[in-house]
């Protein structure tokens, strides 16, 4: 059944070294179209470094990878058109209004004025921000900012969206709403590649990989992982694997 699925991310022994330090060591995995792929690991395990190679802002030391069919060494510009990214740090412009942020990123990704206009109205309606649309982003509560950042990351309908700890510091209700948005995006055919520290979120993923010290220790669906490690929850699975880590924060 897996064979029928379209592969959108494929890595082969992807490695990143900083001097003597191997941040990411020969990771190989595949991600399929429309799935929610959880990329787990303790702090310092190499998640963010790996993700930066995939989104084309860090050049790998060795190994290969293709994103949406494009090579990460030579086709970075094509990759950038087909992905969306939401970083750990909140990265919309706080001194621009919600509307201006949407227009800016819509424009950067080459949407026409008409598309930007209709889609941003639709988006603002959906998020229930009609009254805030002309207010500065700085005035929004964190939960809203994160939802907005996610919406903007998928505004141009990318093939894949990369989310780096998108729900850090967000309350449980907003987190739940956030995951509803992720499901909806996946349902619309956008592949979601997400890193998180919350193990309940790991349960929502179709498949998860667990990284320990720069290496992928486990990769399967949450149900399979739990039965394999004879664990009640993903939390237990994670603790079992991550306890062996040598690298701290």
């Amino acid at each position: 059944m897996l064979l029928e699925k379209e592969i959108v991310i494929k890595t082969d022994k992807l490695t990143k070294r900083f001097g003597d330090f191997t941040a990411v060591s020969e990771i190989s995995f595949e991600v399929y179209k429309g799935e929610i792929f959880g990329f787990l690991g303790a702090n310092g395990a190499g998640k963010t470094t790996a993700m930066k190679m995939l989104i084309g802002i860090s050049i790998p030391t060795s190994g290969n990878a293709t994103i949406a069919g494009f090579d990460i060494y030579i086709q970075t510009e094509q990759i950038k058109k087909s992905i969306g990214y939401m970083s750990q740090k909140f990265s919309l412009y706080e001194d621009l209004t919600i509307k201006e942020n949407i227009q800016l990123f819509g424009g950067i990704y080459g949407l026409s004025d008409k598309e930007i206009k209709s889609k941003s109205e639709e988006l603002i309606n959906k998020l229930g921000l009609n009254n805030e649309a002309d207010k500065l982003v700085a005035s929004l509560p964190l939960g809203w900012k994160q939802k907005l950042a996610f919406s903007i990351a998928i505004f141009h309908q990318p093939k894949i969206v990369f989310l780096d700890e998108p729900t850090g510091g967000v309350d449980p209700i907003t987190r739940r709403q956030f995951w509803d948005m992720i499901y909806e995006a996946a349902h619309n055919g956008i592949t979601v590649f997400v890193t998180t520290h919350y193990m309940d979120e790991a349960e929502y993923c179709d498949r998860v990989s667990i990284m320990v010290d720069g290496v992928i220790q486990a990769l399967d669906s949450p149900a399979n992982l739990k039965s394999k490690y004879n664990a009640e929850s993903m939390d237990e699975v994670f603790l079992m694997l991550a306890r062996g880590a040598k690298r701290g924060e």
């Binding site: 802002i57 510009e77 990704y109």
Partner: peptide
């Protein structure tokens, strides 16, 4: 400093 440059760097600018 505020991290927005990363958002621009992953875009096709």
């Amino acid at each position: 400093e505020i991290g927005t440059i990363e958002q621009l760097n992953v875009s096709p600018i």
